[in-house]
Design a protein around this nucleic acid. Structure first.
Lengths: 192, 192
DNA sequence: TTCATTTATTGAACTTGTTCAATGTTTTTA
DNA sequence: TAAAAACATTGAACAAGTTCAATAAATGAA
């Protein structure tokens, strides 16, 4: 059950079997049906999660009712609203399963426990946060500098697997464009 | 000389005087004249820096020659290209002083040393990386959901001090719009 | 202080992307 | 398997933002 998680951790740092077991034991498995929510706006995010099956979208709804996707999380990805989780403030985000999914969840208390009792866990999350920050930094630059056409082409190249599993509606919400415009981009690309 | 740095660290974690001294000793002070560079595209970023005086911009030049500002760093802010520094890959960024400035720099080797010898430093950077990630996440959502007018108004509110010290050219490059369009936004706002 | 350079403003034409409404297609569910 | 719901496409009118070129204003260096 925690095989994927173990693998993921060992990808970042080295831990003894004992440390791994003790850390993995802090997680609870949860099944989340398609369209069900792990988190809604206004709630305080009480968990950090590791996806073992399925696919989630983490998104925001703006004042005009439009949805913006912050990121998608499929198998082997971590999900949380780090803002709400860290500061214990109401979330501005929704986390919804786009397929029948399974996650391993750890609470803030248990995570703090791990920080205190397994020193390398501090390093693990330092490294993981760095990596997600680096990706977001790259995405920020792309969003500032590239046209929607190019961002769409980049998305397909970078996440061919996600591309297969997502609707154009979801991809448009990630790229920051209307789905109608995405449709026109697709036609333009196809006609080449 | 390291008073600001000490204050900044104690804002995030608690350290003994001895730990503080031992960590602060790993930094070298450097003066950077206005318009001079701490880092240029193609170089590997060898430092993590803490600004004690002045103002820097961290920016990217895209394939069309346009500049996008990833962030500004004034006194009490940290600067680095975390991507290049962490992965030891050529940077895509420029870091330039916009005023005569002073920074405290730590090398990768010394930072690794600190991780190994002062356990709480791991926590310090985990927390700091989380915070910068949270800000970037908020900025990403704003960029996806808000119009340029609103982003400009938000910028002034959020960074009134930076706003005073920056030209409209720099602000436009941060907001992701042309400076001509920013000029039109300013006129529109002024006429209200 | 003056000349050169950088920064800011403006207007007109243009491009990118949105909105709305209609229609067709696919997927889900009863 | 039929009906409903969600998703995708299209066109036309519109809004947001760019580009280019000209000019004015502010700043910096000699």
């Amino acid at each position: 059950m925690t095989k994927l998680l173990t693998q993921n951790i060992l990808n970042h740092i080295t831990l003894s079997q004992k440390e791994i077991d003790s850390f993995c034991n802090l997680f609870d498995q949860k099944e989340v049906q398609k369209k069900h929510f792990l988190l809604r706006e206004g709630q305080i995010c009480k968990f950090e999660g590791f996806v073992t099956k399925g696919l989630f979208r983490v998104y925001h709804i703006d004042s005009n009712g439009f949805e913006q996707v912050l990121y998608f999380a499929q198998e082997n990805w971590w999900i949380t609203d780090i803002d709400s989780f860290t500061n214990e403030t109401p979330s501005q985000l929704y986390i919804q399963a786009l397929e029948d999914s399974e996650v391993l969840l750890i609470s803030k208390k248990d995570k703090e426990f791990a920080y205190g009792n397994i020193p390398k866990i501090e390093k693990l999350f330092r490294i993981m946060t760095q990596k997600t920050h680096i990706s977001l930094q790259r995405r920020m630059i792309d969003n500032l500098s590239k046209t929607a056409d190019q961002r769409y082409i980049d998305f397909i190249e970078k996440y061919p697997n996600l591309f297969q599993r997502l609707t154009n509606l979801q991809i448009a919400a990630y790229l920051g464009i209307s789905h109608e415009f995405l449709s026109k981009i697709r036609r333009k690309i196809a006609s080449k």
